[in-house]
Simulated scan of single mutants.
Amino acid sequence: MINLSPRISVQILLVLACLVSPSAWSQEFRATVTGRVVDAAGLPIPGVTVSATNTQTNEIATAITSADGVYSLPFLKPGVYTLAAELEGFRKWTQERMQLEVGQTVTLNMTMQVGSISETVTVIGESPLIETSKADRGMVIDNQRVTELPLNARNPFMLSYLAPGITYNGPAIYQRPFDNGAIADWSINGGQNRNNEFLLDGAPNNSIQGGNNIAYVPPVDSVQEFKIVTNSYDAQYGRTAGGVINVSLKSGTNTFHGTAYEFARRKALDSNEYFFKVNNREKPDHRLDQYGFQVDGPVQIPGLYDGRNKTFFMFNYEGYKEATPNPATYTVPDAAQLRGDFSNLRDAQGRLDRTPGKRTVGPRSVPRQRHSRQPHRPDGAAALAVLPAAERLGAVR
């Protein structure tokens, strides 16, 4: 028998707490299927093997019903599943193409019929799965909408607009993936701005810098789906005074998939701005490239390891390059002023002071006169040489 001192015991407990704490602090993003298995008379059937098979990865989760016929299948990644229940003396019960979403808890009761286990009862045309085991309510943005709906700057969080009760309070020009502060300006169901929790696969994704920003915005092609919880009464959501946005990332399947993309903006494709039009100005030479690639599939090392049905990967790279000219208007000396003639000097509104002999500049008056041109000092001549020429003489812009 090994006796441990109290100090060593406390140290061991602290190490175990550190190992366990990350999962304890995070909110669950995976789905759960629970329910009760009964016979035709409504009596519970204990000992039934209930399994859920992911149709894309062939991963199988199993559970055995209790004496009350109750089963629970937790920690199911979002996706499409085939659910089955079997027990000797009863026909096998199956339901195919059952879609499970991020953070969903589904109650699915089964009624098994007496017969041979080789016989199968397949349930089709089932009514939509109802979530009655949890108090939170919200909307799931599925993978089809994530990948196919157009997105300004390809920021998946902006699809939260689709959910009722969502108000985005940030400027429309700052929706790029790295505008972490502006894209956190959400108000959900009338809650205060920036009082929401962002989760990435159940882990906290908030940054305290700048007032509750988003820490990381994943590329669109790496997102499986996400759920916007607008009524966060479930006990696991306790760090928000507004709503919760829980993003689930892709994890790969038994088949290799990949995408490559390039989203470009060029001067020739952009429309001209109003003020450039009225001033007969050319469009600025704006350039934007948002590009990358994504690949996922089973982990395979030829001759060493085959990860199909058990080990998967997903990798996504995205680059963003933007060159945005910033046209500006400056006041520069015109040809007359370079010659020393300031008789046409005007104020900020373009008005010429017609007071005889005087010109008001700021708080003081100076004589209105022409100065004979004197040779410039070398430093002054160098400064004048780099001044741009005035494009619109006498105009104020």
Rank of each mutant, 00 (worst) to 15 (best):
I2T: 08
S9H: 06
L13V: 01
L16V: 11
A17D: 01
A17R: 06
A24P: 02
A24R: 10
E28R: 14
A31L: 08
V33F: 02
V38F: 11
G42N: 05
L43C: 00
P44N: 10
P46K: 13
V50N: 06
T53F: 02
Q56C: 05
N58W: 10
E59W: 05
I64A: 09
S66L: 07
G69S: 13
G69I: 12
Y71L: 06
S72Q: 11
L73F: 06
P74R: 12
L76D: 09
P78I: 04
E86L: 05
E88A: 10
G89M: 08
R91H: 02
K92T: 11
M98S: 04
Q104I: 01
T105F: 02
V106G: 02
T107L: 15
T107S: 06
S116W: 11
V121Q: 13
E131M: 09
T132Q: 11
K134E: 13
R137C: 01
V140G: 02
P150W: 13
L151Y: 09
R154I: 00
N155P: 04
P156K: 04
P156I: 14
F157Y: 15
M158H: 04
I166D: 07
P171A: 11
I173R: 15
Q175E: 11
D179M: 05
S187A: 09
G191E: 04
R194H: 06
N196H: 03
F198R: 05
A203V: 13
S207T: 00
S207Q: 14
I208G: 09
G210Y: 15
N213M: 13
V217M: 14
P218D: 05
V223Q: 07
K227P: 00
V229Y: 00
T230H: 02
D234R: 08
A241D: 14
G243W: 01
V244W: 01
V247M: 09
L249E: 08
G252T: 04
Y261S: 00
F263V: 03
R266H: 03
K267N: 08
V278C: 05
P284H: 03
G292W: 06
G297P: 05
V299P: 00
P302E: 10
Y305W: 14
Y305T: 02
R308S: 05
N309Y: 12
T311R: 07
F315P: 00
N316K: 11
T329C: 07
T329V: 09
P333Q: 09
A335V: 03
L338K: 15
L345E: 09
R346H: 03
A348C: 07
P356R: 03
R359E: 11
R359A: 05
T360D: 01
P363Y: 10
S365C: 03
V366D: 01
S372Y: 04
P375M: 11
H376N: 10
A383I: 14
V386E: 01
P388Q: 11
A389K: 15
L393N: 02
A395T: 09
